[in-house]
Design a protein around this nucleic acid. Structure first.
Lengths: 170, 170
DNA sequence: CTTAGTGAGTTCCTTCACGAAACTCACGCT
DNA sequence: AGCGTGAGTTTCGTGAAGGAACTCACTAAG
């Protein structure tokens, strides 16, 4: 893990990135999502060193995004399965995919398409307000300190940053 | 940047993580989003080394997520401003925040709340299908190879992984 | 029985990224 | 002149990543 301890910051982004803030972990979750549940097939697909894959898988299991499911007793062998927590992280991957398709795909177009079961169409994930259902983006929200915000100096700085945002953006 | 070149993978997630696949870059984008546009205030807020901040800011400018805007000529001084590309990356940050609030906030609750301008409520970002508007999650989509998928061996592996997903998950 | 292959790691060594600290430069202000 | 501020740059030590080889526990085939 990186040397700075992002897991103790009072920030959901930082805490999340403490678990998944390097490229391999999201890519492993993606692979498990699409059905690669065995060590060797993930390793082959990603071209990742066995050592790093072992570490990442262990971290994901320890943090509750993956679970090991025994598929063979002699020798002991496991499938890696997404937990509910892991499945919900795939929402983050869908948001990343949507951004990546928009800005990094170039002329070739998106490497991956999603087809939604309900409507049967190829689609992508769009961010909506959980309250009113309208599209939501960085310019259409205010950012407020929440109950889990740190009380002392960071909040002070944070509070003034919120005010500064009003000045600069508007 | 890490040694594996994620930018050349035929995968929007990997390409995106080539730019932003370590914790500092998303945190810097967040800080700029909330209004910290100067070098020193970002540095103080994040407690990041000046060297790493310089590198990350340069990468973000080179990749078009931030732009430098001169606010002083003597000496030359810049505000760092989000581009449209950068603003859309904040959508990814909102998705990360929603996941992090759900799974990493603990008893303290979310450190940050969003208030949506349109409806005036505190809210969070929710993923919806861009076609039909219904909520979308990892279990409600099929993953298909798109036009930008790599033709040869990865696609072969990828195709079989999609089939395996059907077997394991359903 | 031996040998070979497979799956899932572990170990070792080299390289590279990060963090701390110090330094540098270009200002403006007193 | 000296000091403070903002924005870097440099140096050095530490730890993580990657490549390669090795290890172990099986199963299958000869």
């Amino acid at each position: 893990m990186q040397r700075t301890n992002f897991g103790e910051m009072a920030c959901s982004i930082a805490r999340t990135l403490d678990i998944a803030g390097e490229p391999w972990t999201p890519l492993i979750i993606r692979d498990v999502w699409v059905g690669m549940t065995r060590f060797d097939e993930i390793q082959r697909d990603l071209g990742i060193s066995r050592k790093v894959l072992t570490e990442r898988l262990t971290t994901l299991v320890d943090n509750g995004l993956l679970e090991r499911r025994l598929y063979s007793e002699r020798p002991p062998r496991h499938d890696y399965m997404l937990t509910e927590k892991g499945y919900e992280f795939c929402g983050v991957l869908m948001a990343i995919t949507a951004w990546g398709d928009r800005w990094t795909a170039g002329e070739a177009g998106p490497p991956v398409l999603l087809r939604h079961h309900s409507c049967g169409q190829t689609t992508h994930a769009e961010l909506r307000c959980a309250q009113c259902g309208e599209p939501i983006d960085a310019k259409s929200v205010d950012i407020l300190a929440g109950p889990g915000a740190k009380p002392v100096p960071s909040k002070e700085v944070y509070g003034s940053a919120v005010n500064r945002r009003r000045r600069v953006v508007t």
